[in-house]
């Protein structure tokens, strides 16, 4: 229930109505949304039990390594209800054709694959917020100084997931494990997203806010 309360309000992409609906507008909208989402993710992380007990340097290392996993997990969860469409925001849904035009085919295929995995598991909101918090603490950053403290947080959240599933689905002892086994695909998907954003940045021409650039470069 703590994680449900910590869940941020939804963001809107608000594509610029004065710009023609082109690949350029799609990419600009996407990068602007990602930047605002980052601010929200950083604020959200502070509400995850124990996160603020990490040193400031370790909070930074953790977020720098997992922010895109947290972001992608949110997008995949929002896309559960739509096959072959990726719901970056309620007012910013990209189908296969729009993705192709914007050069986002690979990213959208990857997020759709993750969403299919969650759909097959019928992941609900409680499980989504648990997984997102676990993904935060599942960092493998080599820059973390006190890994034991991060491991403790991870264990705490893992235990909470086990208890949740034990209460709600005592007939399905594999449920928690099945959810955790989606984390490798989440990491792979975030890797695809990083490649996509990095090549948008390298090609240039799409405005990117400072925080977004800072995190991409980290």
């Amino acid at each position: 229930s703590h994680l449900l309360v910590a869940e941020p309000e939804k963001l809107f992409a608000m594509p610029d109505p004065l710009q023609p609906d082109t690949a350029q507008r799609t990419l600009t909208t996407l990068c602007d949304l990602a930047d605002r989402e980052l601010v929200v993710i950083i604020g959200w992380a502070k509400h995850i039990p124990g996160f603020l007990s990490l040193s400031l340097a370790d909070q930074m290392s953790v977020l720098q390594s997992v922010w895109l996993e947290v972001l992608v997990l949110g997008v995949a969860y929002r896309s559960l209800g739509c096959e072959d469409e990726v719901v970056f925001a309620e007012d910013f849904v990209l189908d296969e054709e729009m993705s192709r035009v914007a050069g986002l085919t690979e990213l959208n295929a990857a997020i759709s694959q993750l969403a299919r995995r969650f759909r097959a598991l019928n992941v609900d909101r409680e499980e989504f917020v648990m997984l997102k918090a676990i993904a935060l603490t599942n960092s493998d950053s080599v820059y973390i100084e006190d890994m034991e403290a991060v491991q403790k947080l991870r264990d705490l959240l893992h235990q909470a997931l086990l208890e949740l599933e034990c209460q709600r689905r005592p007939d399905d002892p594999q449920r928690a494990g099945r959810l955790l086994l989606t984390l490798p695909l989440l990491r792979q998907t975030a890797g695809r997203a990083l490649n996509t954003f990095y090549s948008i940045k390298t090609r240039g021409g799409v405005p990117m806010h400072k925080l977004f650039l800072e995190m991409l470069e980290a």
């Binding site: 601010v39 950083i42 604020g43 502070k46 509400h47 400031l56 340097a57 909070q59 930074m60 977020l63 720098q64 400072k210 925080l211 800072e214 995190m215 470069e217 980290a218």
Partner: peptide, 15 residues
């Protein structure tokens, strides 16, 4: 940390 100024600031500040 100098390179990651905004993240540093957002984590240090209140919500």
């Amino acid at each position: 940390q100098e390179k990651h100024k905004i993240l540093h600031k957002l984590l240090q500040n209140g919500n």
